[in-house]
Design a protein around this nucleic acid. Sequence first.
DNA 1: GTGGTCTAGACCACT
DNA 2: GTGGTCTAGACCACC
Lengths: 121, 121, 121, 121
Amino acid sequence: MKWKLDDSMPIWIQLAEQIAQRIVSGVYPMGEKLPSVRELAADANVNPNTMQRALSKLDDDGLTETNRTSGRSVTASVEAINAERKKMAEQQMKRYLEGMAQIGFSNAEAKKMIELGEDEE
Amino acid sequence: MKWKLDDSMPIWIQLAEQIAQRIVSGVYPMGEKLPSVRELAADANVNPNTMQRALSKLDDDGLTETNRTSGRSVTASVEAINAERKKMAEQQMKRYLEGMAQIGFSNAEAKKMIELGEDEE
Amino acid sequence: MKWKLDDSMPIWIQLAEQIAQRIVSGVYPMGEKLPSVRELAADANVNPNTMQRALSKLDDDGLTETNRTSGRSVTASVEAINAERKKMAEQQMKRYLEGMAQIGFSNAEAKKMIELGEDEE
Amino acid sequence: MKWKLDDSMPIWIQLAEQIAQRIVSGVYPMGEKLPSVRELAADANVNPNTMQRALSKLDDDGLTETNRTSGRSVTASVEAINAERKKMAEQQMKRYLEGMAQIGFSNAEAKKMIELGEDEE
DNA sequence: GTGGTCTAGACCACT
DNA sequence: GTGGTCTAGACCACC
């Protein structure tokens, strides 16, 4: 998974979101160590300070924990991760309903479509 | 509604999509004339050739019709527009389900969430 | 009231605390505008970025609100301010009890002393 | 316990206070010998003259006694130590009440808070 | 090596 | 003018 940054939002927020995604989807597994700030920064091609800010947001959100001297690791708390997962799911839902609204579908219609459609797989 | 372009896809495709959206959502109403290529191009801040390519894609898709002498107008065909609307709705749905999958929700779970949640408003 | 900074803690935290104090004690009244970041930074003799970080913490804590273009003002929410006031009072209490403990007084003794003593004024 | 010095007060006063604390809290027990001036000075990373001044203040206060030949020891007088302990307790109390006043609590309120709160442990 | 802090200076959008 | 973001580079404490 590559970093995908645009200028529609502060970079550090986008970084935080994408790292959160990796955590929630298990790319960075629960309890495991994260790459160092400098590594991540180099990988994402941003200034270490910017990456730091992103990570510090994850700390605030309880998704990561930092051990001053020995790096930073993903939280071991299932609750914290599930809370984030739920938050993300709600975002997805909101985006879907808004997208549908823009095409002229009411929330009810949007829901109905999902119930019926997409029965493949 | 402003133009939103990035470099993840050819610009003319993004333009076509966004104009299609405007058509489907009634910004450019059925049967009415579209702004001229030059106007649209200036507004979107792209080269007229690029905009031309976007519009000719809409022609191909049956969403617009060009009349040699009097410019280009939105199709008057309800079917054409509904087809496009349906295509877009399916895209939205697909995007939603994929997004949810990435967070670890199965299609079934994603459907259930939509049925239950988002009852505000 | 002058700024008082030492190197026992990050400067930005000390700044945030001292501004919070000013808010709670009414130096910066509820709903009123705060001096600009640059002003405060100059006054405290720190880099604007450092002051910004302090203020951004106050925003996070709900003690201030920032209006992108027209400056930052103290929250108008009584609850937010009372919550902060309570938090500070608890800190004071904790500091007192710990100080007393270090001199060899139990919590109970420390409480008794406060009840009896200090009847001057 | 480490030495904690700032430039808000003469260093020798801060040293005296911190040694007094150690005496009152039993780190340097009643009647026992103190480390030598040189030792203490080296530990606190100050000039021996400064430390000397701090210790002679303790002598003045009756907390320590110096025996020409055999160094300096903590007083064996319970009264002297209790007096110091009481003085410190009053300082703590004063600091607490002043802190609370600054947040907008009257002395009465500050007392009430201590009576009710902090029932943990 | 790790995370964290601070400064200096530039740039942006908004009004 | 306002707040906010980003970069570059230095320094610190910890192990």
